[in-house]
C-alpha cells in the first residue's frame, strides 16, 4: 500500500535580484520515511528549507504540508511541521524548560504534559531547569529537537542535524531520527553535505546542486549497479593479466584489483583464475560510497 504524502513540493522557484537561486524543485515526502537532501554547500539546500518552513516566500511554485498550502493556510500548515533551521538557536538566558514553555505557548493545545514528554524523549530531564547557555552543543541540539517535536508534527525538517556533534552524538542522533520515522511514523527531511551521513540515515535521497534536483531515488537503487568486486590475487602480475583478459579491471594502490560485480560471471572468472594457477586470497563485494556517485552525477564540477 502506498503511504500517505505528508509534504508535497511542486515547481518551487526563488529569484533573488536577477539570479534564480532555486530552479523548480519538485518532490514529495511520505509518512514514515527519512528523506535526504544532499548537496554541496551553496547548492540551495538551506534556501529551500527556509521556504518549506515559511521563512522565505517562494517566487513561484507551491508547498503543501498535510494538504494545507503554506501560502494560504499558514497556521494549519505549520501546525503539522516541526523544524530546526541551521543550528538550534534557543534563548541562552532562559532555562531549557522555559524555552520549551515559550514555544509551547505558540502552539494551540500543547501543555506542560507534552513538555515533560518531549523532555524525557530527548533525555534532557536532569538538566531541563538549567540555563541554556550552560548546555553543551549536543544538549542544545537535543533541546532543539524537543522544541521541534512539541506540537506532535507529522513532518520534521532538520537542517544539518549532526553538524558539530561528536561521533557518539552523531550515532545517537541518527538512531533517534530512525526511531521517529519508524516507530512514530514521522516524515523526516534531513539536509546534509555529508554523503556518508545521508547513506546511513535516509530511505530516499534527492541530490541537489545549483538549485536543481539532479536525481531523486531510494538509497539502494542509487547504489545498486554501482557495486564492485574487490580481488586479492597471488601472484599479482599474473593474476592481473588473466583477470584483465576476462573483464575491465581497476588497479588500486593497496594491491587490490577491482572489477564490476556481476553475480553470473564472477564464479566463472574465479574458476578461470584458479585453473590458471592463481591463488585467490580475497574476494570482497564492495558497496560504493555516495561520494563516488555524487561526483559521477555532477560530473565532478565544483561550486563557484
Amino acid at each position: 500500500m502506498e503511504k500517505k504524502i505528508t509534504l508535497s513540493v511542486k515547481d518551487l522557484r526563488k529569484v533573488i535580484g536577477r539570479r534564480e537561486i532555486i530552479k523548480g524543485l519538485t518532490f514529495d515526502l511520505r509518512e514514515g520515511e527519512v528523506f535526504g537532501f544532499l548537496g554541496p554547500n551553496g547548492a540551495g539546500k538551506t534556501t529551500t528549507i527556509r521556504m518549506l518552513v515559511g521563512l522565505i516566500k517562494p517566487t513561484s511554485g507551491s508547498i503543501h504540508i498535510c494538504g494545507y498550502n503554506i501560502a494560504e493556510d499558514f497556521q494549519k500548515a505549520l501546525r503539522n511541521l516541526g523544524c530546526i533551521v541551521e543550528n538550534p538557536e534557543l534563548y541562552p538566558y532562559l532555562s531549557g524548560y522555559n524555552n520549551l514553555l515559550h514555544f509551547s505557548r505558540m502552539i494551540n493545545g500543547v501543555g506542560e504534559e507534552r513538555i515533560k514528554e518531549v523532555t524525557k524523549l530527548v533525555g534532557l530531564a536532569d538538566r531541563i531547569d538549567d540555563k541554556v547557555k550552560t548546555y553543551s552543543l549536543g544538549m542544545r541540539q537535543r533541546l532543539g529537537i524537543a522544541q521541534a517535536l512539541l506540537g506532535n508534527p507529522k513532518v520534521l525538517i532538520l537542517d544539518e542535524p549532526t553538524n558539530g556533534l561528536d561521533p557518539a552524538g552523531i550515532r545517537e542522533m541518527r538512531n533517534f531520527i530512525r526511531f521517529l520515522a519508524e516507530k512514530e511514523g514521522l516524515s523526516v527531511l534531513v539536509s546534509s553535505h555529508l554523503l556518508s551521513e545521508i547513506q546511513l540515515l535516509c530511505d530516499r535521497v534527492a541530490i541537489i546542486t545549483k538549485g536543481t534536483i539532479i536525481r531523486t531515488d531510494s538509497v539502494e537503487k542509487l547504489l545498486s549497479n554501482r557495486e564492485r568486486m574487490e580481488w586479492r590475487l597471488e601472484p599479482y602480475l599474473k593474476g592481473k593479466e588473466v583477470l584483465s583478459s576476462l573483464t575491465k579491471i581497476e588497479e588500486k594502490e593497496d594491491g587490490m584489483i577491482w572489477t564490476e560485480f556481476n553475480e553470473e560471471k564472477i564464479p566463472h572468472w574465479n574458476k578461470q583464475l584458479v585453473e590458471a594457477g592463481i591463488s585467490v586470497m580475497e574476494m570482497n563485494r564492495k558497496m560504493p560510497v555516495l561520494e563516488d556517485l555524487f561526483l559521477e552525477l555532477t560530473g565532478g564540477e565544483t561550486i563557484e
Binding site: 515559511g54 521563512l55 494549519k76 523544524c83 533551521v85 541551521e86 502552539i107 494551540n108
Partner: peptide
C-alpha cells in the same frame, strides 16, 4: 542576531 527569529516565525502563529 541570536537566530531565534527562525524558531519564532516557524510556529503556527501569524
Amino acid at each position: 542576531s541570536q537566530g531565534t527569529v527562525k524558531l519564532l516565525l516557524t510556529r503556527p502563529v501569524k
